[in-house]
Design a protein around this nucleic acid. Structure first.
Lengths: 237, 237
DNA sequence: GAACGGTAATGGTTTAACCATTACAACAAA
DNA sequence: TTTGTTGTAATGGTTAAACCATTACCGTTC
């Protein structure tokens, strides 16, 4: 006859209202919400309750809050930051190790390279080759340029992910790297020889992509990630 | 000579203190934080500020708040819920389509099956075969049991992910399925013939796992996911 | 012994006041 | 006129105290 009265936490209702407004596109990224004092009147809640709702929306990555005159809650474009933060928590909690993350990365990069080989346009290949040229120069200059080399390596993998046209892979690239970079900074040491090996890897992958050989691109990418990881293994434990 | 004074939002300091306490293991899942009135005394902040911090921690999935006497903030075990929620937001935001998600799933399931083939123990295979027997029975009973069949299918894929021993794959399984299930419920219709096809797929994959044929397991799994998806394609648009 | 009801502890909400930061306009000095 | 300073007001951040809503527990009553 009756059903349980809805357990209302008023701030949750506020969160849902604002979130729906944003997701429905009625509030676009860059647009501002009314000031706290206005919003609390519209929503008929206290400022404290409204602020709890804003904290949740901020944590979800939907809004950012700026101070001062003309400040307030600005709608954010959705990014991968929240996913990365959640994964980072899992890692901190010791449930995910570097091995686990690397193994996952091997699979993803392999698949991404295969898809990129299948779908790359001539323009994509030209772009990849220009990145490759940068990598070659850094590799020649030796270990002082390790950091720059790693940056280009990362950029090449990101470009491959973008060639797939699948935002999930782009997201995964960011998520994996945001969470794996801390290990690189601590444990990765490459001398000129290792950088040259890695450059050769990258060149082979891009060559396979250009020849649209999907299987070869996949195998090369998998081997490349594994090799990259081996440089850390002896130091890690 | 001087550096910029730290921009303090007091509630963030509170968030960090509590989060660190949890991540360092000083507060284990199931344990309770002091009451708001105690905590605000310890931390020397107002209750409103403390509550904003608790909202953030709640949204991060680190605590859950219970009402009434003996209630309060309970430390949560870290789960995949937050990652799933973030991905769900991306999907709602139209940046990820079912095709994108399926394509990603194809890669993941292929890799998972290959790793499972490499690492499965006889006990794992026995477990998989018992699940397969359940699937066989539901498939024989026809489309009234579609939902049960899909559940077993999902369980088999989860088991394969668990056999890899890599928590990232287990996490990905949950994330992908939590976000893809809504489509299944809306668009997936399998008659007895389709269920029989799917059962054959699963049997082949498990057979390949038992024979430790990694390449075959990967290819079969990829084809299986694609077939599963094709059942929806005509209805989706 | 079981059901009811009171009590107290907890989180949820409101209100009002003040602090900190910022943009901008008004003004003064060069 | 240009430039630098200062005042003002709007915004979010914080505090405080009071009350409401939910719940566990205990004592009373039948």
């Amino acid at each position: 006859m009756f059903k349980a009265a809805k357990q209302t936490r008023i701030f949750q209702d506020v969160v849902e209202q604002i979130q729906e407004t944003i997701l429905e596109g009625k509030l676009m990224p860059g647009e501002m919400l009314p000031s706290e004092r206005e919003l609390k009147e519209v929503l008929q809640v206290s400022r404290g309750t409204l602020r709890e709702a804003l904290r949740v929306l901020e944590q979800k990555g939907l809004i950012e809050i700026k101070l001062g005159v003309g400040g307030g809650a600005v709608v954010q474009d959705i990014s991968y930051d929240q996913i990365n933060e959640s994964l980072a928590l899992l890692i901190r909690y010791q449930k995910v190790s570097l091995q686990h993350l690397t193994e996952f990365r091997v699979g993803v990069e392999g698949r991404v390279s295969a898809l990129a080989a299948e779908r790359s346009t001539p323009a994509d290949v030209i772009h990849l080759k220009s990145l490759l040229e940068q990598a070659r120069q850094f590799a020649e200059k030796g270990s002082d340029f390790q950091k720059a080399f790693v940056e280009v390596d990362k950029h090449i993998h990101l470009s491959l992910a973008e060639i797939t046209g699948n935002p999930v892979y782009i997201s995964m690239h960011h998520t994996v790297h945001d969470n794996i970079d801390q290990y690189y900074e601590t444990f990765l040491v490459m001398k000129q020889r290792e950088m040259a090996e890695n450059f050769t890897d990258l060149a082979s992958i891009i060559d396979a992509v250009e020849r649209k050989n999907t299987d070869e691109a996949r195998q090369l990418a998998e081997a490349h990630v594994l090799r990259f990881n081996h440089y850390m293994e002896s130091r890690e434990m």
